[in-house]
Nucleic acid binder design. Structure first.
Lengths: 139, 139
DNA sequence: TTCTACATTATAATAGTTCTAAACTGTTGA
DNA sequence: TCAACAGTTTAGAACTATTATAATGTAGAA
């Protein structure tokens, strides 16, 4: 929930030039109370709904990757024909409804911390992601 | 670690015709002490190393999907440009080494059971998968 | 053996993503 | 202020994993 000049500051401070495409994408992604999940395809649709200036597909890909690298977006590991991203970058896990093909946040308070009692020498843990697959309960 | 006639039995008992392609793929996948992870691409290479009879790419895809549906293989949820499969179908989780792009099993004894204290009405949990991303520790 | 449903195959088609290289633009410094 | 340049955008081509197609082959039953 920032205004444009705040997005400009945010972009500049992370070494990204505040172009009008990036500012527009910031608005679409971050100008909401609720965080959400999206695919590139869905993001393109949201963008075209909210502006008349078309942003090219390549730019959307570039920007999403740039934002992901800067930590403004997270990619959700899931087997799918397309990549899912999350504007919620705080620590949390997901349900994946295989019937509806729908991702749902799990409140972090509802997951006991995952304890991994082993390590790989020379490697440090970057993230721990839990994916809970669910399906219709026809019992 | 089965011989061919046991694969034939295994296939037949799960309603899959024991064709020579499927038997060969069984050998490549299951004739080892250690379980392993693979992509379709890697599997095709393993197959062509172990036989002179070429198996078409479409058949490899069909067979892997059939085996996955029968529970002989598991697909590992990971963000990648290609799908990863696991011949270890017992309950366990994974490290993913982002530097080496390498998947490593985590012994199930090394992970405290993941407790999810919330449910989605009308849905039942199908699986809970933990992916621990690691990277080189340059500290 | 013969029939039929299931499998295999080569190839085409599809779809998500990345690449390319030319045009454009934000920023810096004179 | 403005030129220069590095970073950015763009359309479209290229790439790659995967799925679809439809003709041919084959296992298993009768």
């Amino acid at each position: 929930m920032l205004n444009n000049s705040q997005y400009i500051e945010k972009l500049r401070s992370s070494g990204l030039r505040p172009t009008k495409q990036r500012i527009k994408i910031c608005e679409v992604l971050f100008n909401t109370q609720k965080t959400f999940h999206f695919t590139i395809n869905e993001l393109v649709k949201r963008i075209s709904k909210s502006t008349n200036d078309k942003i090219s597909l390549a730019t959307v890909y570039n920007t999403v990757h740039a934002f992901k690298n800067k930590g403004y977006l997270k990619e959700i590991p899931i087997n799918s024909d397309q990549s899912y991203f999350d504007t919620n970058t705080s620590h949390h896990h997901h349900f994946y409804d295989e019937t509806q093909k729908d991702l749902i946040d799990i409140d972090d308070a509802d997951v006991e911390p995952v304890k991994i009692n082993t390590r790989i020498p020379g490697k440090k843990i970057k993230s721990v992601e839990v994916l809970v697959k669910v399906e219709d309960d026809k019992s």
